[in-house]
Simulated scan of single mutants.
Amino acid sequence: MTNHNMSDLIEEYIKQLLEEEGLVEIRRTDMADQFQCVPSQINYVINTRFTVGQGYHVKSKRGGGGYIRIQKVELNHHGDLLSELEDWIDQKLSVKDSMAILQQLYKYDIITKREANLCLSLLSSDALKLLDKTTEEKTRACMMKRLFERLRYEEKE
């Protein structure tokens, strides 16, 4: 082997599996045994080298039958618009502004009318009524940014 560190080797192995299968489901302890390292090393590699920003969707389930599932995703062709809208959102977002954003997403065929209406329901003041006004607007902004992050990527089929 060449002069690679353990993290590089683990990353290369997972990427090779992804190339062959498209979807990888691993057990952290099994990988740690295979590479003769601690399980936290596997976590480190996954958390730093298989992020949404790098084009991966990671799902994990803890416990005895737990697993880590990694899937390659592709950048959505509306990524620039979504980035602009996300930059426009400050730390707080009003219901009125969230409505306007969802209308833009619908207008550009990024989401369907049904999806826009579902998002409106979730972002409404009624849905967040247990929160004070400032916390409500901060929560709405966070939820909208999370929506943008997810919309930027389409799962590869």
Rank of each mutant, 00 (worst) to 15 (best):
S125M: 07
K129H: 10
R28D: 08
H77S: 11
E21G: 05
M6S: 06
E155K: 15
L123T: 07
M6V: 08
C37E: 04
T51E: 07
K138N: 07
S125G: 09
Y67I: 09
L17W: 13
L118A: 07
V95L: 12
V38W: 07
A141Q: 11
S98V: 09
E157D: 10
L81N: 06
S40T: 10
F50R: 00
Y44D: 00
K133S: 04
K145G: 13
K138Y: 10
V45N: 01
R140Q: 05
L123G: 04
L102M: 04
L93E: 01
D30C: 04
I110N: 01
Q71E: 12
N47D: 10
L82G: 03
L82A: 05
Q16L: 15
G79P: 02
E149D: 05
A141L: 12
K72V: 05
S83K: 15
D132I: 04
K96G: 02
R27Q: 14
I26N: 06
E157G: 12
I10G: 05
F148M: 15
L123P: 12
E20H: 13
K15L: 13
E84M: 14
N117G: 04
M1T: 11
E157F: 11
V24L: 13
D80K: 15
Y106E: 11
K107I: 00
K61M: 01
V58A: 03
D33W: 04
E25V: 08
I89M: 01
D8S: 13
Y67Q: 10
L85G: 03
I70H: 14
A32Y: 11
E157S: 11
G64W: 13
K138F: 07
Q54D: 01
M1S: 14
I14F: 14
V73F: 15
Q103D: 08
G63P: 12
A100N: 02
I10C: 07
T134W: 09
Y44P: 00
Y44K: 04
I110G: 06
M6A: 04
G22K: 11
K15Y: 10
N47H: 07
D132Q: 08
Y67D: 08
G63K: 09
K156A: 05
R27G: 12
M1N: 06
L151M: 11
Q104V: 00
K107P: 00
F148S: 12
R146F: 14
K133T: 08
E84G: 02
S125F: 07
K129L: 02
A116S: 06
R146V: 09
F35Q: 02
R152T: 01
I110M: 05
A32E: 09
H57F: 09
L105R: 02
T2K: 14
G79Y: 10
L118T: 00
T112P: 05
D90Y: 14
A32M: 12
N3A: 08
E12S: 15
K107W: 04
D90A: 10
L93M: 06
S125C: 03
V52S: 15
M31F: 15
R27A: 03
D132N: 12
E84H: 10
I42P: 03
Q34G: 03
R146I: 08
S121R: 09
K129F: 03
M31K: 05
E115S: 09
E11M: 06
C119H: 11
E115G: 00
H57Y: 07
D87Q: 12
L75S: 11
D8P: 00
L18D: 09
Y106T: 06
E12I: 15
L151P: 01
D8N: 12
N3W: 15
N76I: 02
T112H: 02
V58Q: 01
R69Q: 10
E86P: 06
A127P: 04
L130D: 10
K72H: 11
